[in-house]
Write a protein that binds this DNA or RNA. Structure first.
Lengths: 210, 210
DNA sequence: CTCCTATCGCAACTCGTGTTGCGTTAAGAC
DNA sequence: GTCTTAACGCAACACGAGTTGCGATAGGAG
């Protein structure tokens, strides 16, 4: 068709069997690599194409912009399984989740991707939607530590599981992206415990809370 | 000297009296206007110069890039007085602070600037420092509601006042920049109350907390 | 007022991103 | 195997952001 793939929102080609799928895989991998190497603004469609061993017009025609490249890369990695921690206690699980956030963002190689995703989401609605879907998926996976705690009787049944995860991560992301202050293991513990105290106080109820 | 102003970190010119100061003021005002109109990536040095009624080489020589423009604009508005709320209770004050965050980010005209600042801070160290200084200043101003509460005996004296402000704002910023979920007055109240509960539980102590 | 020079305006230039037209390759159907 | 055409490679181009050299303007000192 005359309509390029990046304008109908999906990347289903008419020939998904061989070359198209191969090209997509190698381009998305190159996208991650270039993101780590140059960051969001330093990244160029041409550099991604070169690294992938593909001509730049191919990438321009199938994806169009770096925002769409990042969004597609994020979509493709959205549903990879993410093992939720299981330390035996809800507090331990929440601290483990918060600690992983700290670990990611204190490693420049791993923090480059989420930072670029946040930037891209502020520029294009396509990337914004991909980011939203990604975090919704991850939060749903992480929320099992809360539902398990409810089943164990550690927490009220009407607690909003995903909201508790959000409140656990929020103070860390706030320091990273807003105040620019450093984060460490103590900050992770503090964030997890604060979220837990709020949940135990009934402030994170799921229903039309009072 | 041969060193352009944006490389020595300050914008003190040798002739601060007349034209230089006038040019700076009109350029920074144009920076804000273009930020609202085009966002961070749509913004260009040339458009800022045109709007300011100056030639683009003037802006290029004094600031160099849009990151520095944004950083300088932020610096110049950092110390404008920001009236902290005074509702009579700490809970009311925190809810008022959180509600203002919601108000700003539900108005596209007002949310454009902080969104651009976050983006710019992810690209240049100069903008990152300006953002850090700006939020440090605002948080210090907002923290007076906490110190007042401590004086009234509402809260333990060892509470980290700024940390309580951070925990109040964090869940809102998390929804705005990370999960992309909507925010409203209920979310503001929830964030403020959760932070307050954590503070009352002694989790936000200033000292080498236990 | 006169002089010095920091700062600005102007025009031409460089360079890299993104585009377009066309020929080539290979996936999928038969 | 042959045929069709979606998808790719290639080369030349268009466009705009950022740069540079030089002359003009206007603070600030004496």
């Amino acid at each position: 068709m005359a309509v390029p793939p990046h304008e109908n929102g999906s990347f289903v080609t008419n020939r998904p069997g061989g070359r198209s799928a191969r090209v997509r895989a190698v381009v998305l991998e190159a996208t991650y690599a270039e993101l780590v190497r140059c960051g969001y603004l330093g990244m160029t469609v041409e550099n991604v194409a070169d690294r992938a061993g593909v001509h730049k017009t191919t990438v321009y025609r199938r994806w169009g912009t770096v925002d769409v490249l990042i969004a597609d890369a994020l979509d493709s990695s959205r549903d990879v399984e993410w093992p939720a921690p299981d330390t035996g206690s809800l507090e331990g699980d929440l601290i483990a989740i918060a600690t992983e956030v700290v670990d990611v963002f204190t490693d420049p190689a791993r923090s480059a991707v989420p930072e670029a995703v946040v930037t891209a989401a502020l520029q294009s609605s396509r990337a914004r939607q991909a980011k939203k879907d990604f975090y919704a998926s991850r939060h749903a996976q992480a929320a099992v530590v809360v539902t398990r705690a409810i089943q164990r009787g550690e927490l009220a049944a009407d607690t909003d599981a995903v909201e508790l995860i959000r409140f656990t991560c929020a103070p860390l992301y706030y320091r990273i992206f807003i105040t620019g202050e450093p984060i460490d293991h103590a900050a992770a513990e503090r964030a997890a415990r604060a979220a837990l105290v709020a949940a135990r106080a009934g402030l994170l109820a799921a229903a039309p809370n009072a």
